[in-house]
Deep mutational scan, measured.
Amino acid sequence: RADKQHVLDMLFSAFEKHQYYNLKDLVDITKQPVVYLKEILKEIGVQNVKGIHKNTWELKPEYR
């Protein structure tokens, strides 16, 4: 399990490339446990629960 700041850096870097990611792809990118990753994502992102981007994560507007 990596340092939180290191995980945040990896996530922000990923979100610079694409606006939406599913959790599986973010786990592959960060190599972090799902529960730990979700904890961090809830602080900086929102999970889309409907629409064409259903079940994906994106950054909260203040982090874009």
Rank of each mutant, 00 (worst) to 15 (best):
D25M: 04
L59E: 01
V7T: 11
L11F: 03
S13F: 07
F12C: 06
I44E: 00
Y63G: 04
K50G: 10
D9L: 07
E43H: 03
V46T: 13
L23Q: 05
P61K: 13
W57P: 03
H18N: 02
L23I: 06
F12P: 00
D9Q: 14
I52M: 12
L8S: 04
Y21A: 08
N48E: 10
I44H: 02
A2N: 05
F12M: 15
D28F: 09
K60C: 03
Y36C: 07
R64W: 08
I52S: 12
Q19H: 13
L59C: 02
K38H: 06
D28L: 09
N48S: 10
K24E: 12
E39K: 11
I44C: 08
D3C: 05
I52L: 14
Q19P: 14
E39A: 12
K42C: 08
V35L: 11
Y63V: 10
D28R: 13
E58F: 13
L59H: 02
V7C: 08
K17M: 04
V7Y: 03
K60V: 02
I44V: 12
Q19S: 13
W57F: 05
R64Q: 10
L8P: 00
K60M: 04
L59I: 07
K17G: 05
K50W: 06
N48Y: 07
Y20H: 15
E39P: 11
L26E: 00
F12A: 07
D25P: 00
F12E: 07
H53T: 09
M10R: 06
E62H: 04
V27Q: 11
Y21T: 03
E43S: 05
M10G: 03
I29K: 05
Y21R: 14
N55W: 05
I44S: 00
S13R: 15
D3Y: 10
L41R: 00
I44K: 01
P33M: 00
L11D: 02
D28M: 08
D3I: 13
K60W: 01
V7F: 02
Y36F: 14
Q32Y: 08
E16H: 09
R1Y: 03
A14M: 12
F12Y: 13
V35N: 08
K31M: 11
V34C: 11
E62W: 09
Q5L: 06
G45R: 03
P61Y: 04
V7K: 01
G45A: 14
Q32G: 02
